[in-house]
């Protein structure tokens, strides 16, 4: 079972994760209005900006984060922002949405000028997250674990980051054992998705480069 301290940490992270979401009016725009490819791209860019702001607010609530060296805080957020965004988007895509919404969202992304070679791995990732049937607690913890990755470029005090990440990993492992007792590999599979996220992050960097070219 989770210790009292671990339960408190879990509740805190889940609350912070649920509290910090993309503003509803912006999310609604994705479904309601029609845009041409360029406007579509601009909307997705605004979404990404809002996503980063929300991510920073969530991260500030992770116990101990604000006590880290300020430049290390920035290095962690810079290194993980794209991965955390993909995780959150995967959660949106695997959630049961009203009829037709998934298609509208998918269509919008496909018509944003992003080339197919980048879109396919992204939707494959969403699918692989969907197959895990992750609980909201697992999404919140996995996002915190992604952000608190000590091996990001320019992080000076990796040991300090590890001291924050380790308890999260322990809580996630215990939570997985408790909630998925019939699937002993569940925790390992979750960690495997972090490797996929790293690959997507690299794809994303290439995608930005190709956008700049065009």
């Amino acid at each position: 079972t989770l210790s009292q301290e671990q339960q408190a940490l879990l509740s805190f992270i889940v609350d912070a994760y649920n509290k910090h979401r993309i503003p509803q009016d912006m999310a609604k725009k994705l479904l309601q209005e029609h845009f041409n490819a360029e406007e579509n791209f601009m909307l997705l860019t605004d979404m990404a900006t809002s996503h980063v702001q929300v991510l920073v607010e969530f991260t500030k609530n992770i116990p101990g984060f604000q006590a880290l060296d300020h430049e290390d805080q920035i290095a962690l957020l810079k290194g993980s922002a794209v991965e955390a965004m993909f995780l959150r988007s995967a959660q949106v895509f695997t959630r049961k949405m009203p009829h037709g919404h998934t298609e509208v969202l998918e269509d919008r992304i496909r018509k944003s000028g992003i080339s197919e070679e980048f879109i396919t791995p992204m939707f494959n990732f969403y699918k692989s997250i969907g197959e895990l049937h992750m609980l909201p607690e697992e999404h919140a913890l996995l996002t915190a674990i992604t952000i608190l990755t000590p091996e990001r470029p320019y992080v000076k005090d990796q040991a300090a980051v590890e001291r924050l990440q380790d308890p999260m990993l322990e809580v996630l492992q215990k939570f997985c054992c408790l909630q998925h007792s019939s699937e002993p590999q569940h925790f390992a599979r979750l960690l495997g998705r972090l490797t996929e996220l790293r690959t997507l992050n690299h794809h994303h960097a290439e995608m930005l480069a190709s956008w700049r070219m065009s």
Partner: peptide, 21 residues
């Protein structure tokens, strides 16, 4: 790269400010 600077700018501003206020 410019895009990375953009990301860093957003992060720095968000770290200093408070969206909830």
């Amino acid at each position: 790269p410019a895009s990375n600077l953009g990301l860093e700018d957003i992060i720095r501003k968000a770290l200093m400010g408070n969206l909830e206020e």
